[in-house]
Design a protein around this nucleic acid. Sequence first.
DNA 1: TGTGAAACCCTAACGGTTAGGGTTATCTTC
DNA 2: GAAGATAACCCTAACCGTTAGGGTTTCACA
Lengths: 191, 191
Amino acid sequence: MTEPSGRRERKKAATRQKIADTALRLFLECGYDAVGIRDVASEADVAVTTVFSHFASKEALVFERDQDFEQRLTRAVTDRPPHEPIIPALHREVHALVRHCTAEGSAPVRRMIEGSPALREYEESMSLRHAHALAAALSADPHLSRSTTACRATARFTIDAYALACRADDPGATVDEVFQMIKAAWEATAA
Amino acid sequence: MTEPSGRRERKKAATRQKIADTALRLFLECGYDAVGIRDVASEADVAVTTVFSHFASKEALVFERDQDFEQRLTRAVTDRPPHEPIIPALHREVHALVRHCTAEGSAPVRRMIEGSPALREYEESMSLRHAHALAAALSADPHLSRSTTACRATARFTIDAYALACRADDPGATVDEVFQMIKAAWEATAA
DNA sequence: TGTGAAACCCTAACGGTTAGGGTTATCTTC
DNA sequence: GAAGATAACCCTAACCGTTAGGGTTTCACA
């Protein structure tokens, strides 16, 4: 993304990346539960406290790119062409996000997440954060004069669509079907 | 609910209740984070291991009546008068549940939950379980011939309505507004 | 070049949770 | 009613994620 200029920042980013990579590798090799933070730290050749200075929790090691997700969602609202209706914009973006998360290489990671209650729980709470951010973006859009409740509900519905699609047999079709519902729901709130 | 017959079962239920009551009292008195499992155990005069044989986690102590919630939701589907449309039935039940959770006496508990990330996270993951159960009930209903995806989405939307309303300024109005959206969404899936 | 801060390290602890293995109370069956 | 089976409970010790406290190195910048 943004190229860090100073050596210190570069080193910090490198440490962070090394920890994340090491963690993911160990998790996939041995299983999430079988790998401890102390294992990750020593394999990455850093102190345990350093791991926690880069990542808030063990689960966060798995969802390293979580910020991207949130940004892409909110930008689908804020950066869309002027006067483009909101629902198609969200529909398109969720499609892309789902494709990304159900891509070939992501399968082992998904399987790992589904296999760990702690990771599933963490993912949900991430989703709620994303729903909050999306709701704020919707509320802030001057072209959409809808109630706060309508914005919040639509945000949650959108996240639901993503979550359902990621676990569905046919992710693409699931996104389409749920968005047909979301479209109707949204239109029912027209002032 | 069901009266246990044997002495053993009665004693077990009493122990469970004593633990739950003690825990909630201590949590409300001193704050959730300030009270440890060891505190709860010794105040309830049981061993720590006994606490965990009745409750799966510290958070579960707070959501003791969680099973009720799930049952009420699924029964709103399965036990509704024959040929009653599903959405009004859900609407009514969510109204009742929200009223229950925003009642006078529940305020301190709600405040405690909102004040603890761990409790919020736990509540979310409970909600997902409820959504699963509700989705299964919807799918199983012979009068509703909708796709699995439509049932799952509607279940999640319903849980969203509950979650949003519990935190809204005007819970009742929020339920109504979101259910107007859900109604439209559901009707958009008609075969 | 010196100084402050950021990144990192180590150790020790805290708190939720569980394993292991034992004791008592209740239930069942004869 | 005695004997065995089992459920509920207890204790101790540990595991593991996480944090506090306090030190050292490395870098940025004046």
